[in-house]
Design a protein around this nucleic acid. Structure first.
Lengths: 244, 244
DNA sequence: GCAAGAGTAAAACACTTGTTTGAACTTATC
DNA sequence: GATAAGTTCAAACAAGTGTTTTACTCTTGC
């Protein structure tokens, strides 16, 4: 009757057989649960399905994680740690030209999205969370959404010469993020409307480059417009060069 | 024992009490089901929850619609008919300048998304379908996704001077769509990252204008670049005017 | 060697789900 | 008014869910 993992980790030197968190059934459960939760969502996934896939007993879930939600939150946590958010972070922290940083961020994010193996779990989970939130949604937002968003805000803010909390900065950041996440959330829809689209690594690079070009066109145009003209064009349509 | 609605509509002159499809419980059920399905998704919504909310007996669902899926598909169907897709269609078919048409389409789509009443159902349903597809997903794609997408492809194709099935046309179209749908799918995430964001009609107009400006910057720049230079810049980064 | 506890396994439990049943009610048609 | 079909209702059903119980195995520390 030691269902609470925290109490077990406290007296880790006393009696527990297994070293610390290297319990084989625990890990099997976490891995399988991550995959199944990512594919079917929290509600649709059953602990029996997970237990069978992990070749462990049903009661093991409740024994090791208390209940289904405990397993889910730990699986989500692990999926986040395994995610390559750091690749994006790294791209954001180098001292290259801002345009190159933005391009690198877009590439990293899109690359992490479009692969079938584990790192895409956290985005599938996020999609499920948006459709049917669980108590883990807030954690996902805090640990994935907001950090990336605020960093992107600062980067794009610098590029267009406005503070990070300016409305225009936010709108531009959401525009960039929207172009990326649409390839996750709307992928079945895109498959239906564009069957030839295959998410090969090469194609992903082409898409990322397009998103960067598409976004930089406005961002760079906005900066020059802001700097050339002093303050006037904040409401009307923005056409970087009315050369026509 | 006349559970099949089609058989009832056939012999509509023979015996049926109710005119045709003006059955009060049927309609109550459809309305309530549309709302609940849109909010909670197909799996999470229960027919008991729907029946109670509609103040009808549980068995009425199976009597009138055969089973839960029958109710769902009919509710989705009705939600699609009620949707103001026609507003977008109308915007697409007027003979105004292409830029104005694109802007009108973005406005119409974003406007239909960001309201709490019925018309936003079909987008909520779409989000749920993407997370956990049901047999109704294909219908949603066929009746909502693809038509709008192909029309947008033609419009943007004309704007950048490329055929509708060109890869660049598709990428641009997805970029525009992504900026729109992100406000639906990621709305809880945006709420967390940008709490001040309130989707008032005025704010929605500002967002729509931004998306139009953001997109037109690249689209217009791409067309002029294509027309000035003959054929050369199809792979490298696209900067509308390398004026720096 | 042996008691104690960690961990596992099978079964049962309590609950919710979609669906069905069969009787009661309603109403048009004769 | 009688009949028959459409329609509603409460109740029950069968399947599936998360969870708990109970017995059992096996290592660990004395």
């Amino acid at each position: 009757m030691d269902k609470n993992p925290s109490s077990r980790s406290l007296k880790t030197a006393k009696r527990p057989r297994r070293p610390a968190e290297a319990d084989p059934t625990r890990n099997k459960l976490l891995n399988v649960a991550g995959r199944i939760f990512a594919h079917r969502g929290y509600q649709a996934a059953t602990i029996r399905e997970i237990s069978i896939a992990a070749s462990v007993n049903v009661a093991a879930v409740n024994y090791h994680f208390g209940d289904k939600l405990g397993l889910y939150t730990e699986a989500v946590q692990q999926s986040l740690q395994a995610a390559e958010i750091e690749a994006v972070q790294n791209a954001l922290e180098q001292s290259a030209p801002l345009e190159d940083i933005l391009r690198a961020v877009i590439h990293a994010r899109l690359r992490s999205i479009c692969r079938g193996d584990r790192p895409d779990w956290h985005f599938r989970i996020l999609a499920h969370e948006l459709a049917q939130p669980t108590p883990a949604l807030q954690q996902l937002i805090d640990e994935v959404g907001r950090p990336l968003f605020t960093r992107l805000l600062e980067l794009i803010g610098k590029m267009i010469g406005l503070p990070a909390n300016d409305e225009k900065t936010r709108l531009c950041t959401i525009s960039v993020m929207g172009q990326i996440v649409v390839y996750v959330f709307a992928s079945p829809l895109l498959q239906g409307a564009w069957p030839e689209l295959k998410m090969t690594p090469k194609q992903v690079e082409r898409i990322a480059d397009h998103i960067a070009d598409f976004s930089l066109s406005y961002i760079q145009g906005y900066r020059t417009m802001i700097s050339v003209q002093s303050i006037k064009a904040t409401k009307r349509a923005v056409k970087p060069r009315a050369s026509k």
